[in-house]
Design a protein around this nucleic acid. Sequence first.
RNA 1: AGGCGCGUAGCUCAGUUGGUUAGAGCGCAUCCCUCACACGGAUGAGGCCCGCGGUUCGAGUCCGCGCGCGCCUACCA
Length: 878
Amino acid sequence: MSEIPNTYQHHEIEDKWRQQWQAWGIYRWDPSLPRDATFVVDTPPPTVSGSLHVGHVFSYTHQDLIVRYQRMIGKNIAYPMGWDDNGLPTERRVQNLLGIRCNPTLPYDPDWRPDPSGGKRKDIEEVSRRNFIEACAVVTAEDEKAFEHLWRHLGLSLDWSEQYATIDDHCRRISQLSFLDLVERGEVYNVESPTMWDIDFKTAVAQAEVEDRPRQGLFYDLRFGVEGGGELLIATTRPELLGACIAVVAHPDDERYQPLFGKHAITPLYGARVPIVAAEHADPEKGTGILMVCTFGDVMDVEWWKASGLPVKQLIGRDGRILPATIGEAPYPSVDSAAGQRAHDALVGLPVGRAKSRIAELLAADGSLPGWDGPALVGEPKPTDQIVKFYEKGDRPLEFVPTRQWFIRILDHKAELLAQGEKIQWHPAHMKTRYAHWVEGLNQDWCISRQRYFGVPFPVWYRVGEGGEPDFARPLYADTASLPVDPLTDTPPGFDEAQRDLPGGFTADPDVMDTWATSSLTPQIQSHWGVDPERHRRLFPMDIRPQAHDIIRTWAFYTIVKAWMHEGEIPWYHVVLSGWILDPDRKKMSKSKGNVVTPDDLLVEYSSDAVRYWAARARLGTDTAFDPGVFKIGKRLSTKIFNASRFVLMQLDRAVGEGGMPGVDAIADPLDLALVERLRGVVDQATRSFEAFDYAAALQVVEDSFWSFCDHYLELVKLRSYADEDTPGRRSAVATLGLALRTFLRLLAPFVPFVTEEVWSWRFAAAGQPSVHTAPWPRSAEVEAVPRPEHDGTYEAAVEVLTAIRGAKTVAQKSLRWPVARLGIRGPERHREALGPVLEDVLRAGNVEPGGVVIEDGPSPEGEHFAVEVELAAEMPG
RNA sequence: AGGCGCGUAGCUCAGUUGGUUAGAGCGCAUCCCUCACACGGAUGAGGCCCGCGGUUCGAGUCCGCGCGCGCCUACCA
């Protein structure tokens, strides 16, 4: 029996239990138990180089609420922690922080150590990929500590013995294994093709990482010649791509241009002869209705080019600058090579933006064709609202650059992937539609290669021909037993390191996989797929994937792809989607908007329990405005739990001291039976809600009934429990108080784990069962032995009369202790019968003087049980 | 432009399969230090349930059409 503290100090309580939970190890997964006794969470690995903000606290709390319920219903919980330290954000951060850059061709230097002050140096140090990865690990370890501190502070019941990082050996092995498995299944290929390309990061990006941004563009009206006489006016926003024009297209039904189909146009400046072709995608309403197709301005250009069989005129390089070209030679034929070359040379080396204005000057100055009058640019450029594709982390528009990339075949499998989505339960259910729309709208295979350094390398080499050219058609793949490999430092099977990059030898694939190629495997990473089949069987498919709804198209989708391709399975049975935290202006909180709230101050000011309460109030999938008022409510609830528990346990202690603790069989008073009946309903409803992952509905019903318990039941039963003798009435009251508190603490434990654990420890902790968090979830069957109340509405009738008495005293500006001289209660028989058995409790709680009550038959006001008249005593005795 | 979601008290949100008089908390007002709690308690005021039509004995709830907000997707010449 521990001392019951007088006041609620959340800092002390929380520190104590954080340490105790770790010492107990109650959140450990037990690998010996079978799959069906286990609840498996596919924990989101946060991007460790990102910032911590309340959005994290919000969604991770949602997982923890579900997990804590599952633990209490007896499940063996597998709730690991992963870190996403792989990929561009970390690479950038490490470069800036340590002043280093990765040069994958350098050999590994085992003695090299990162210099923490390197970021201040002027000269950038180049290091090998392995050294770079080690440096990243050093930096991310710090970031991970910050997250871990926050998670522990918040009381997340993670199993800290189960951790992974997406760049560690294990994750690289699983990622490469996945790649090789997909090679074997024919689901992966590499091809040189125009790819969405970020010119600053100098890497390919996937469809899912692209976002549209509105932009103010300019329409340039350009005169094109028509072979055999005449001219065309073409509106374009990208005049700098004029040299890459391979055709001119108009809609087949467009009568203005029908006579020209089959003829050729001559481009200004370059003098290229290009076909005039009918194409469905041309919109007669837009611009002049006729447009130039370039290699490559946008997705339509790429698609049209693929179907056309025309040559590529690649004018934009990987750095976004205009490439040199020999005008007059294939693929740049010209009717006036000299003029064309002059024009093009003026652009070479310029970034696209500057090239645009430069060519506009040229076109405005002249640019017309031999024998023509006037400039090719007609009038002033006209502003137009455009929507341009950007890499989500990028600052300049994407270009389409032909490069060799690895792709996973997803376009061929839309139907199967939609079917997989149907097998998974989405919470809330309408989120499934988002998944379906994304799958239906796919128009590219999944590009998984990135021209970066900090990532999982492809376990691939190529034979080098006698002429020094790599044989991309027949890659050399690593042996699965050798994984993880780095082809830049490891040697392919059957070759010798001395043959690297030599004719007749081999060369490494220099690329790394996109982060999503690894994070799409979080279930397999956790289950050790392909490495430990027994463990895999105990963890896969998983129970839940908690995540935010904005990454359905990436994380959820890609994970479903991988699980289906590898094993024909769904990765998890449920996807549980959290909403966003919005700032008071209802904008999404994000670092880039500068409106983030950091959680640390909130946790200190209001307590972890209060912050968790705030998160728990938000229903799944629903965006929630950041409202500090809710933290206050959470803190009030915690304080109330603390104080009400003190009261109840003091009554229990007294009873134990005087006559032994009464068991549930002592519960007999009608008011107590009515309370137990209400508890049954609350337990059943909360359980039903949790089973549907609706923690917010569970919280609502538990919280409401707990407040009613404090405000009404405790007041009604107080004086009976104070009785000096060990009467049946007192025994019933004390037994009910104990039962109710035991029940409420367990119902509230997932939401406010600290204060409930504190109170539980005072009297309810047992030797083999020290924590409320491993105590069994309450069931209505626990109180089967307690009889049902004789009448319905007993509790409500008592509350109504008590409220009327309190109201009268409040209106009279008297203390609630003030005696009532006369209490008139009028109502129909049904209600009087419900009230009768608890009348004594009500009169005691209302301090009604003996004999002062008059009960009579009659109608009650609408919506109420009784008409109540209260006459207060003239004065307060003593 | 299509799809999904949302619109309820000043604010943040509940509102099950349609069913008497639409709920909670915060905030506000008035009052009360009573032996669990002043980090508290009691009581109260406050709603054209976005608008217009429809179905129904009955609509916050179902259907249609609008309006506003958010997100997803598509528009990139």
